[in-house]
Structure formats: C-alpha cells, structure tokens
Nucleic acid binder design. Structure first.
Lengths: 342, 342
DNA sequence: TTTAGCAATCTATTTCTTTGACTGCTAATA
DNA sequence: TATTAGCAGTCAAAGAAATAGATTGCTAAA
C-alpha cells in the first residue's frame, strides 16, 4: 500500500529522483528551487525533505549533503511517478533499424532484442531462456550420428527447438531409433513439456523391445534439457563509466553477479510475472544485488513465454528510459510476429 | 635472437620477475640480497640492474622505486628462465578430480578443462571453438522440422558436431530433403570442411531437381557455420582482486576485451600454433591488450585441432604456474582420449 | 671488480587548513 | 497556520605543508 503523499511532496520526490539519476550527486534544496513547478523557497523544500526522510523516502549521505532517494523512494517513483513515454524519435529509429535483421531461430530474435536494449539504454543486458514446461511438444526426432551417438531434437508449438547429443557405450541400430522415435512421439506429443516422470518412463521401457539403459539415459538427458535455462549477459563493459563503479566493492559485486549468472536467473524465476518487473536493490533478496536493480520483461508470443529479457544496473538507474524502451521493444516483437516476420 | 646474459644477470632477472609476480611491488636491490643464490652486495646488484635496464629488460616506475620487468624482460623470462614443474601435489589432485566428469560432447570436455584452468590459476579463461577447415566431413544430415524449417547437422572425423537451423519462405518436401542429403553427402563427405565455393554450388544446383534458392540458402548457412568460431569467457570476476585493477583504466580495458570477444579470437587465430603460445602485452598488437598477457594451448586429439583454451590476465602473470597447469591438462586430455574416455 | 657509504630523489602518508555546500532551527512574516 | 529569510553549525572534499621511508646512483676505497 503506497503511502499517500500530497502533491508537493510527490513533485519534490520526483524531482529528486530524476536529478539524482541524471547527476549521481545528492540533491540539495537549493537546486530544487530552480524547478519551475515548485513555487516555494528552499526553506520550505527543506522542511518537506525532512519529512520525506522521516517517512523513509529519502536518505542523507551525511549531514551537510543533499538528499538521495532510498530504495523505498525509488519504489514509489517507479510505481507512482514514472513517465513512460520517454523515447526520442531518434531512439525509436535506432530500435527499428537494429531490429530489422532477418533471423532463423527465435533465440536469435532474443539476441537481437538484447543487443538493441543494451545499445539504447547503455546498461548490461540479460537474456534468459524460457522455462519451457508450459509449452507443448509437437515433435521429437532422434538422429543417429555414428553408431553410438544419438541426437535428440524436441520441437514445441511456440517454435522453440532444443537439441541434445547423447553418447552411449554400446551400438545403436536404426531399428531401435525408429522404435524410440515412434514411442516417444506417441507418448509425449501434444503434452506439455514437463519432466518425464517414473510412470511415463515405465511405460516407454515396457513398449521398447530393447535397452532399458538406453532409455534411462535418453530420459535423463531430455530432462536435463528441460531444466536448464541458459543465461546470457551482454555489455558488461557498459557499466564501467558509471560513477558508482569507482567504488571497488561495487565493481566487485557486479563482476560476481555477471559471472554467477544463476544469481540473476534465480531472482527472475522466483519473481512474479508482471508485464514488466522491477527489482530494486535488496528487494531481490540477494545480498550481492543490494546495490543493483534489475528490470525485465517476458518475451511473449501468443501468450507463450519464450524468454526473459532484462537489464541490470545500479539502483540509480534511469527507470523511465529503461521501461519505455522495453515496452517499445516488447510491442515491436509482437507486432513483427503477427505480421509473420517469424 | 635472445641476447646472451651472463649467469648473474639471468639470476637477477629471474628473481626480479618472480618477486614482482608475487608481490606486484617494484623490486629493490636490497630485497634481492636476501636471495641465497646471489652472493653479492646490494651495490653490485644495483650496477647489474642498471645494465639490465640499459638493455631493456627492466624498467623503473620512478627514480626512487625498485625495478619491474619490461615486456622484453617477461619475454626472456618465459623463453629462457621459466620453471615448468610448478604444480603441487594438491593442485594435481584437484585437476584430476575436476576432470573426472563424464561428458557427451567434445565441447563439454573443453568446458570442463576451462573451468578447471580457471579454478587452479585464478585467472579468466577463454575457450575458442576450433577452426574446422582442416577437419574432414564424415556425414551431413538434413532433418525437416515442420514444413519450412530445416536442421542441418555436420559431423567431422574429430567428433565435432555443428548444427544449424534454417528457415524457408516455402514448403519443403521430404523428397527434396532426401535428395539434398544424398547430393550433399556425395559431394562433400571425405573432403576437408572448407567453405563451399562456386563450382561445388553449381554442381549441386545442377544435380538437384528443384529449388536453387533453397540450395543457395543452405550453402550460405553452412558456410556461416564453418566461419564463426565462438568464444567463451569464464571467471571474469577472478581479476578483480588483482592490484592492477585498482586503476580504472585497466579495469575498463579488461571489461572491453571480455565483452568484445573477437579481439581475443583475432589474436589467437593470427598467432602461430606452437605447443603453448604466450602473447605478452603489446606483442598481440592490439592496443586494448597492451597491459594484458594471453597464454593458450590447442586442444589436439590425434593431431586434429578441436579448440583453443587459454587464459587472460595482467602482464604480471604467473607464467610458470599457468604453463605448468596447461601442460598437465593438455596431456591429461590426450591420455583420457587414448584410454577411450571420449 | 666489488663494496661501503652517503647525498639526492621521489612517493606515500599524515596532518592541518581552508573552502564551500548544505541543513536545521529560530524568529519574523503573510 | 504555512511560509520564508537569515544564520549558525556541520561535514566532506580539496589543498598545502610537513614528514617519513624507500631506493637509487655515484664516489672512493678495498
């Protein structure tokens, strides 16, 4: 439940957040007087600022400095004060141009969206493969590569293709492969792509004439394929010029997060799936992320989740710009899809 | 042609390089006197150091500091003075343990070697997919996924598998796929995996009954597959604790290099293929790398290059440890291979 | 050829001072 | 009651000066 702030407090908070995002310096009462919307003296603003600090929206680095937004302050700003139409004509042109490339796979489309996002926002971007468990299998293919190596390819209705190479200690015959293909398809096509469990495994083993070990291994590998959702990070160098990274500790935290990609995957997968998700500082409940914010959106086609795209940066992030770009890219991906681009 | 240094100068250079690698502080004549192998006074050492600086093996950060090795100094050290048996029993155990995992693909083996290397050396590791142009094709498979999506899988004699998904604007028939498979195999199996050129393309087009556009597209995609060699980087956070990264500029350079992986790929691909390759500072002729060294080895199985593995770190790098680990891992990969592990 | 000894050099550290940017409070004002 | 002017108090950041410490290069003697 967002506290109710009166109009002047809202204006002051908004002005502080925006000025701090721009300059990365604590904002003083004096500099706010220049804001044309605020028709009062610096003393009045000081009183208001003191109150905003009292209720937790602002903090002071030290007595004689200006104020900076607290995590709660950012949250209020994002939920209540943000402007979402923060894209210049030039930026829209850039996005359009960058996203024109033709691609063969959905994954490549994600890649392009990611690069675009990074270029426009100047933050580090993240792409996480979708959790495919609510997608429907439309085909499973097994291809024998050599006599002991099998390639399994799974296709889903949303156009996602996953493949895995499996090596055996014994020879496989083409006949076995044909059997496998038949039975796996029979049992799994049309079903949601969930983990293959005990009962299904038993059924398949029963149907097959040979090789329980082979089936076990295949199921193991397929399950592995379903579980792991790869995370890609791009533009790690984008952050280096930001003033917050002058502090060794923050730079260290950042590199650690970038390296242990699962930290980010974890946060995103446990989050709720809103249109656009914003995790500010320690809201993500990971110590390493307390100085960072993550903003993501789910790349949806026809209601199917085909991956999460996001950015990570300091809590002093240009939320307005980031969210504007994301909304635009998200819409464009869908429009292109409807126009049959993919 | 390595200059000839007398024995004492060699010892002094070696001691300076090793102490500087360990402490990252300029080495003084005084601290070298403690070295038991050097039976002379600090004054004598100072004279020798002055001469070593004269001929370019050492440098001074400023008048009243000790000496640090120059790039030329490191080079002499690596070529002439390096000890290669610099692995503790404990480290060998660690390597053995980490490399025990069973894998299905050669690529996964590379991944494991990379992780091991990073853990043992505490530097950032690099893996670059092999240039497959001298490998021989043993099979090409085309699999139809849906009516307009084709998957091409290429197998080489070295066990490398490359696959690509190709999307068409028109429907494909199974018959066409069978034709494609037959003709491509006929023409390319047993040949080195080079770019498919004009004459071959013409031949294939002639043989096929239909769809010159389809063939063009397939060849385009296959050629793309052969060209791009992906680069993976792991352990970027390993560097953060090194004193040299206190300097903003170096941290920036490093992140840029990590982000623009092709810089590294470029250096490695233009290098000569020795057993182990060491690029010190600006030897790699890329401005961004002037403060970094790269050490790589080629992962060879039966003489076939199946990928390059390496590390990147500051020029003040523990070359001895790095090279020792690499030799050990390289040998182990080969031994495992001969024992049929893969 | 080697070494002891010493002046000269230069960085890094510490301490002190100064400056300037804010705030918070008080008392006057509308 | 809400606003504001004015001013003392606080604190960090920047600058200046002093100090300490490390190391070299040179000279002259061994």
């Amino acid at each position: 439940m967002p506290e109710n702030l009166d109009n002047r407090k809202r204006k002051i908070l908004q002005a502080i957040v925006e000025e701090y995002i721009e300059t990365s310096e604590p904002v003083s009462s004096g500099s706010l007087v220049k804001n044309e919307e605020l028709k009062c003296s610096s003393a009045t603003i000081r009183n208001e600022m003191a109150e905003l600090e009292q209720i937790g929206f602002l903090e002071k680095p030290h007595t004689s400095a200006g104020r900076i937004p607290s995590q709660k302050g950012y949250r209020y700003y994002v939920d209540e004060l943000l402007r979402e139409d923060n894209l210049s004509r030039k930026e829209i042109e850039m996005i359009k141009e960058m996203m024109e490339t033709k691609v063969n796979r959905l994954e490549d489309l994600t890649k392009i969206a990611t690069t675009t996002l990074s270029e426009i926002t100047h933050y580090t971007t993240i792409a996480i493969e979708p959790n495919v468990s609510n997608h429907t299998i439309i085909d499973i293919k097994f291809i024998l590569l050599g006599t002991r190596v099998l390639m399994a390819v799974i296709l889903t209705d949303s156009g996602i293709i996953r493949e895995s190479i499996i090596k055996f200690d014994e020879d496989l015959t083409q006949e076995q492969i044909d059997d496998l293909t038949y039975i796996f398809n029979n049992k799994l096509v049309g079903k949601p792509l969930e983990k293959i469990d005990g009962p299904i495994e038993e059924y398949i083993v029963e149907e097959m004439k040979t090789g329980i070990r082979i089936i076990e291994k295949i199921i193991e590998e397929i399950n592995k394929l379903l579980e792991d959702s790869k995370t890609y990070i791009e533009g790690a160098n984008k952050v280096i010029d930001m003033p917050e990274f002058k502090k060794q500790e923050m730079a260290k935290d950042f590199l650690n997060v970038i390296d242990a990609k699962d930290i980010i995957a974890d946060v995103i997968n446990t989050g709720m799936a809103k249109d656009i998700n914003v995790y500010i500082g320690s809201e993500s409940e990971r110590e390493e992320l307390k100085n960072f914010s993550i903003v993501t959106f789910n790349h949806l086609l026809d209601g199917k989740d085909i991956g999460t795209i996001g950015i990570i940066g300091p809590t002093r992030m240009d939320y307005s710009k980031v969210i504007s770009v994301m909304k635009y890219i998200s819409k464009k991906l869908n429009d292109d899809y409807k126009k049959g681009k993919f």
